[in-house]
Design a protein around this nucleic acid. Sequence first.
DNA 1: TGTTTTACTTAACACCGTTAAGTATCTTTG
DNA 2: CAAAGATACTTAACGGTGTTAAGTAAAACA
Lengths: 208, 208
Amino acid sequence: MGISERREREKEEMKELILKTANKLFAEHGFDKVSMRNIADAIEYSPTTIYLYFKDKNELFYALHLEGFRMLAYEFRPLLEVKDPMERMYQMGLRYIRFAIENPDYYQLMFLVKDPLCTTETDETWEAGHNAHAFLEQVVIECQEQGYLQGITMRAAALMIWSFVHGLVSLQICDRMKLYQEVDREQYVTDAFEAFQLMIRNFKSVEK
Amino acid sequence: MGISERREREKEEMKELILKTANKLFAEHGFDKVSMRNIADAIEYSPTTIYLYFKDKNELFYALHLEGFRMLAYEFRPLLEVKDPMERMYQMGLRYIRFAIENPDYYQLMFLVKDPLCTTETDETWEAGHNAHAFLEQVVIECQEQGYLQGITMRAAALMIWSFVHGLVSLQICDRMKLYQEVDREQYVTDAFEAFQLMIRNFKSVEK
DNA sequence: TGTTTTACTTAACACCGTTAAGTATCTTTG
DNA sequence: CAAAGATACTTAACGGTGTTAAGTAAAACA
């Protein structure tokens, strides 16, 4: 009785189609172009059909954010070949920034939007995010083993680094760099990043 | 001929009423409750009336963000009495974080929302934001005069500090701290903040 | 072959920002 | 003082949003 199997398969395919289309709209036209009616138009189904496969828009957006983390993970892959922990940290920062600037919509969905993911899921479904963060924590651990970032917990160090880079790209993405009146905003960004890296490098031991 | 003066005054009062009501809805019920129709209901006028006083919703939200900066400035006032620059920096960070956590909707409007202010205004109307940032830069200058934060430009240092604190509270506000699986998230936040302060303190001179 | 389940659609609800057109009321002018 | 004009505001509508209830046609099952 392969019928129910086929049914299951078709259901999965439809879900895939919706997701693929949503992702396409998202990547091509940005956040705003992803509405239920919009996706429905693109896949040539009625808007209500989507609700047969996803509870609501939040659930769909939650599924979308996974694609973002997949992209970020891909961006991080070459880091495994960087042996020196501090250098790897530096490269990771660069790649994080680049990912955010080049994919602002995905970044917004992953880190800047309040609703979509927080309300929906039960608790532990942020696996992709956890993985990305675990990777950062691993690098922090290795840095600490080499004598850097001493005097603070690994968790606090990771959060500190993440906060900084996230803040930097958030201000850029949300267009708040305009608070720097003069022209060389981009320069300040890279300068700030370099300064932070310097600080991390210098943060070997804390002399009370 | 005081008629036109009275007219002018009444127009100003109406604008004030709209703003006051919008601010009230905003502070009491959050971002989402501030819709044109919502405000209209509250002031017992038709929605279209608002458009006689504000070009569109962006212009209204732009006016609203000023209130946020006014509140932040008020929060910063006691800092003038802190003489030691590094201590002042520390206190400023604490107050910034507290403001953000206690007024997440205002913070969102001021720093986290993409649309409302960026599209509308011509260029230089971010005066309140500039002032807040200028205050930070002043503190940075004084820290540098005392031998801290050497080897980087004042602008880069200010951006670095702002980015970090902004990133920290953004992750909190947008509820992304869940990426820390374990329970003591609040502890990590304060730890990260303390660690950052320590780093700043230690960042006196850069030994190549 | 008749019955039930499945997949999907139509129509609607209640919102949203925004605009065009209309209506009183107040002010100015002849 | 009355006609003309400006002002302040409203009604109704457009096109958009997320979402739900009810209905339909086809497929699967008995």
